[in-house]
Amino acid sequence: MNPVNYLYLAALLFTIGASGVVIRRNAIVLFMCVELMLNASNLALVTFSRLHGNLDGQILAFFTMVVAAAEVVVGLAIIVSIFRTRHSASVDDSNLMKL
């Protein structure tokens, strides 16, 4: 098997995640979709690392994980505080930016 298959898998997962961001309304699920996209890119990075034979790709994936962790912490905090004030986790309910 060619390791490129891992890349196909990553592309597929990334696409699913991106579609999920657009389709789902629950902010938490939306966040999960973002996580899925990050994971897909991590997979791609790890695969590239293997293809090229050096560890830089893995380092990059590692940093991506750190950033994802930070992002999740802040993002969930935002969701919690929005839920507290608006009693809803739906992103469609927060459309105050509309003119």
Binding site: A18, V21, I23, M97
Partner: peptide, 17 residues
């Protein structure tokens, strides 16, 4: 054109997509 600005995050996400 203003109608494009729905205020819905998902619309904007779609346009970014």
């Amino acid at each position: 054109l203003r109608r494009i600005q729905t205020g819905y995050v998902r619309t904007y996400a779609l346009s970014m997509f």
